[in-house]
Simulated assay, not measured.
Amino acid sequence: MAVRITTLTVNPAVDLAAQAASVQPGHKVRTFGERYDPGGGGINVARVVTALGGNALALLASGGVTGRFVEEMLTAEKVPWRAVRIQGACRISVTVHDQSSGLEYRFVPRGPELTSSDCANILEAVAAADADWLVASGSLPPGVPADFYGKAAGIAAARGARFALDTSGAALTASLQRGVHLLKPSLTELEAIVGRKVRDLPSQMEQAKRLVEAGAAQMIALTLGADGAILAMTDRVVHRPAIGVSQRTGVGAGDSFLAGLILGLAEQRPPEDALRLALACGAAAVRGVGTAQVRREEVEALLT
């Protein structure tokens, strides 16, 4: 039986990607080539795991017509999902590619304010999830306490599931040493945790290993952009370079990386191979259009 991966998205979004000839302040900017995708960290992870043939369920907080639109898009992509109803409407995130400059502009709302009842209902759904891995990815919307992911990690551990986390800010620091199996920080997030700049590869590997030894998480997957990624474990640290591709967007690349890593580990691939799969998924995402657009054939081609 395939390993069951449940993803948690507390702050999902309708992701709109478009192009414009030129983005200028004070002017009505006409866009074209619009594309809508279901977005939010955990949702992106579930979409990529599903695209790769894995067994994923997207658990999401869903409200309003925008929430229903997210659900419809997941259904259209054949991604299994389960919604926890909230009072507020899900946010709409907008990414515009400026053709004149080549720059990408991203507008990301904070999301709806959740009530204490909303939070309790989400944690109740987490407790009911039948999963081998629980992957929480993305920001916490207003009204959700910083230790929310820490509570989710405790629930997952009590049910015998491995908990993976990709978030930032107070939600990240409040979750350290709370039973997280895999933590995926960016370099900026790692530096925020250790309290100083860590700019060379040996120091990055050392700091990631120290976090594991300190009990922050059992594994640290540190993403380094063009410099690849590091996977730190109790017994060793692995680094792999990035897979060189032409970049069109960065939306969903980190989530795609996490999806590949979780799937690789869930399939009991050697850590080095799981990290390679993760980098291939991230590379496939950045050269696509829209959010976390990853195809299995493309990933396999990048791995050859």
Score class of each variant (00 low, 15 high):
E71K: 08
A242C: 08
V23C: 09
A156R: 04
A285P: 00
A171D: 01
R91C: 06
A229I: 04
A174H: 14
M1N: 12
I43A: 07
A259E: 02
A51N: 11
S22N: 12
P12K: 01
P202M: 10
V48H: 01
L57C: 10
V45Q: 02
L74Y: 00
G42S: 05
R82T: 00
N121C: 12
E206C: 10
V238M: 09
A292Q: 06
S100H: 11
R296L: 06
V238L: 15
P270H: 07
D200M: 11
A292M: 03
T95M: 13
Y36H: 13
L103Q: 14
H181Y: 15
A285W: 10
R47N: 03
V108S: 14
L303C: 02
G264M: 06
V29R: 05
E191R: 09
A131W: 11
I193H: 09
K197E: 15
G33C: 02
A136G: 10
S22H: 15
K197G: 03
A164V: 02
S93E: 08
R248F: 13
R162P: 03
D132R: 09
D255S: 07
D132E: 14
L59I: 07
G40I: 03
A229G: 10
A17E: 08
T304Q: 15
I155M: 08
V135E: 08
L103S: 12
A253K: 03
G290P: 10
Q218E: 15
D130Y: 06
E104I: 15
I92H: 00
G150P: 06
A76M: 12
V3D: 05
T9Q: 04
E124Y: 00
V65L: 14
A292E: 01
G160H: 06
V49F: 07
H97Y: 15
L277T: 13
A158N: 13
G288S: 11
G215S: 08
H239N: 05
V237C: 12
G41E: 01
Q204V: 09
P185C: 05
L74V: 02
V108C: 14
L123W: 00
Q247K: 15
G282C: 01
A129E: 14
R287G: 12
E34Q: 13
K28E: 15
R68D: 14
V49D: 00
H181M: 05
G150R: 07
V135N: 03
L182Y: 02
G41C: 09
V135R: 07
F148A: 04
G102V: 04
L201P: 02
G26E: 04
E72K: 15
F107K: 04
V14M: 05
A274C: 06
E72N: 13
P38M: 00
Q268C: 10
V14P: 00
Q268S: 15
G154P: 06
I43K: 08
E77V: 00
S93D: 12
T6H: 13
R210G: 08
A2E: 10
V49G: 00
V45N: 06
Q19G: 09
N44D: 07
G41L: 07
Q247T: 15
P271M: 01
Q99V: 13
T188L: 11
T7E: 01
I155H: 05
G88S: 10
E300T: 13
P271T: 05
E267W: 14
L190S: 03
N44G: 11
S246L: 10
V289E: 14
A152H: 04
G282R: 08
V70A: 01
S256A: 12
L60R: 04
G244M: 11
